[in-house]
Design a protein around this nucleic acid. Structure first.
Length: 272
DNA sequence: ACGAGGTCCTGCGAGC
DNA sequence: TGCTCGCAGGACCTCG
């Protein structure tokens, strides 16, 4: 679920609560999300550490600790992170860090497809180097997007969602951006013309920025860092609207699973 | 060098 | 009402 706007919202919400906080007791309710540490080693590495910085990279939340290690949390489909006071019993709570007083940072993940990593500075460098550019960074130009789409005949929608080519775009915003840019999601990425790349560049950045302003899209599980649903789901133009009228031309929107097996919503008329 | 499909998990809504 | 089936925001892998 959480794509760039959702993780950005979580990071902004958590930052004032976490920055400077010391992690007390670490409770691991489900250990299968820990991808590179045993539960004992994980708890030992975190307990007593101070959080010095809260940031986002792609769809990952990154907590920098005072010993240089980074706690990287990738919520994938159903993960959420909130700061709560005296968290109530929740069968889907996965991790719980006491923060002093009554505050806790809780990672909740129904399907537990999420990933939690503890990375040294060197491993972090290697990790972030494999991810593509940040689409909202000032230096992300249309030419840069054009380069990300180069090579191979893969569908442009798949290229947009490929985290090595471009960071942070998932299924919802790939659908939205392609509709805004009036580009057929199944077209080979390498065949998108320069004028279309320019439209797509504007569309991707525009929809991501508006979704951040709207505090993300809640389809089902996503919650902001304060535990609220996002507000952008009411402003989606195509995602989840199969059979409903296209907001541009009024014809019926279509749904296919032919691209990568993922739900692709599009207007067969506007995006052809 | 691709794409297709299975895998990790659980829950929910549709359909029978 | 109660079952089974397919699908869900992601990303990894193997196979052909």
């Amino acid at each position: 679920m959480p794509e760039l706007p959702e993780v950005e919202t979580i990071a902004r919400d958590l930052r004032p609560h976490l920055t400077g906080s010391r992690i007390g007791a670490v409770r691991i309710h489900k250990s299968d999300v820990l991808r590179n540490a045993t539960p004992a080693a994980f708890a030992r590495a975190l307990a007593g550490r101070r959080i010095t910085e809260v940031s986002r990279r792609a769809k990952h939340l990154v907590l920098l600790l005072d010993d240089g290690l980074r706690l990287v949390i990738q919520p994938r489909m159903t993960g959420s992170l909130t700061v709560a006071r005296n968290p109530h019993r929740d069968p889907y709570a996965v991790l719980d860090f006491a923060l002093g007083g009554t505050r806790h940072l809780v990672y909740r993940d129904v399907r537990r497809l999420g990933a939690v990593l503890l990375l040294s500075p060197a491993r972090w460098e290697a990790y972030t180097a494999r991810l593509g550019p940040e689409p909202l960074a000032p230096g992300f130009t249309a030419a840069r997007l054009g380069r990300a789409l180069e090579g191979g005949r893969l569908a442009v929608k798949k290229a947009l969602m490929d985290q090595r080519r471009l960071a942070g775009v998932g299924n919802i915003y790939a659908n939205e951006a392609l509709w805004i840019a009036r580009i057929d999601p199944s077209r080979p990425a390498a065949e998108i013309r320069a004028t279309e790349v320019a439209r797509l560049h504007r569309a991707v950045r525009g929809v991501l920025r508006r979704a951040v302003a709207g505090r993300g899209t809640t389809v089902r599980d996503y919650r902001t860092g304060t535990g609220q649903p996002g507000a952008f789901q009411g402003r989606l133009a195509v995602y989840g609207r199969a059979g409903e009228p296209c907001l541009a031309c009024g014809r019926h929107l279509a749904l296919t699973h032919a691209i990568d097996g993922r739900a692709t919503y599009f207007c067969p008329w506007c995006q052809s």
